[in-house]
């Protein structure tokens, strides 16, 4: 397996969009073809994407790599359209198959999971915070790993759940991946899952006990990430076993 070699100089490169996937009404996945000199990535790493206008103005954003490292030759990013953003509307609505996109990566050595650090996994996502965690889930599946893994995933409504079918299919393999959804705004009739923001009680029910030596990855909007991280520490987790990635006000 190609391990991410992070020693190379980080240079801007161009990738061709080979496929677009509609995930939700606001979210689209872009699959980019990679050149052979792509060093490979670790699950959880991101890329910087740069758009250049005709007058030379440039805008840059970071997007998590959603595809597994094993998915060689290509790379997937999943982008949520932010209404008045200057990058995401272009990526979601205008970029089509065959277009080129400028990016650099893989980036980041902290919010990564490569199966070696032991302990069960707790993945907590809010909205498109699922993206880097999806790379971990896909990596886990591709490796045939049976590390006990629980995903707690907060979305506004069922229609807003990104990768819903794939996540449910992977959970149905009964290889140690369990998935818990919470829908904070709209619920379909007969919904039996959680129906509120992630809180201490939910994390007590879903999360691992601290003495089970768990490792947690939390990704999503800043308020969600801070609330979850705080609650886990309150439940007795060691802060250095809770890795966070806040979206913050990205400006889209």
């Amino acid at each position: 397996m190609a391990r991410a070699a992070v020693q190379r100089r980080l240079t801007w490169r161009r990738g061709r969009v080979t496929r677009r996937v509609d995930e939700t009404p606001r979210v689209r996945t872009l699959v980019l073809a990679l050149e052979e000199d792509w060093p490979g990535h670790l699950a959880g790493q991101h890329v910087d994407v740069r758009l250049t206008a005709e007058d030379g103005y440039q805008a840059q954003r970071s997007y998590s790599i959603a595809s597994a490292p094993e998915d060689v030759g290509q790379l997937a990013i999943t982008v949520e359209r932010i209404g008045d953003g200057e990058v995401s509307p272009y990526l979601v609505d205008e970029l089509t198959e065959g277009d080129q996109l400028e990016f650099r990566g893989p980036i980041g050595g902290y919010f990564v999971w490569d199966e070696t650090p032991g302990g069960p996994l707790l993945l907590v996502a809010g909205g498109s915070g699922i993206c880097p965690l999806m790379a971990m889930i896909r990596h886990r599946a591709a490796r045939g790993s049976r590390v006990p893994t629980r995903l707690l995933y907060s979305s506004r409504s069922l229609e807003d759940v990104i990768y819903r079918e794939e996540v449910d299919l992977l959970a149905a393999r009964s290889d140690g991946l369990e998935v818990f959804h919470t829908l904070t705004r709209d619920r379909p009739a007969g919904w039996t899952g959680y129906a509120r923001r992630i809180d201490l009680e939910m994390l007590t029910e879903v999360g691992w006990r601290p003495d089970e030596g768990p490792l947690g990855f939390v990704c999503g909007p800043t308020p969600l990430v801070e609330a979850v991280a705080e609650a886990l520490v309150q439940l007795g987790w060691s802060p250095d076993r809770v890795k966070t990635e806040r979206f913050g006000p990205t400006g889209g």
Binding site: D48, S62, T222, R246, G248
Partner: peptide
């Protein structure tokens, strides 16, 4: 609310450092 994690600066830090700093 404006806070991010150091991880998000990994890109700009790689413009200066030869190794990953995040």
């Amino acid at each position: 609310q404006l806070r991010l994690d150091g991880n998000a600066a990994a890109g700009i830090l790689r413009e200066v450092f030869a190794m990953d700093v995040s």
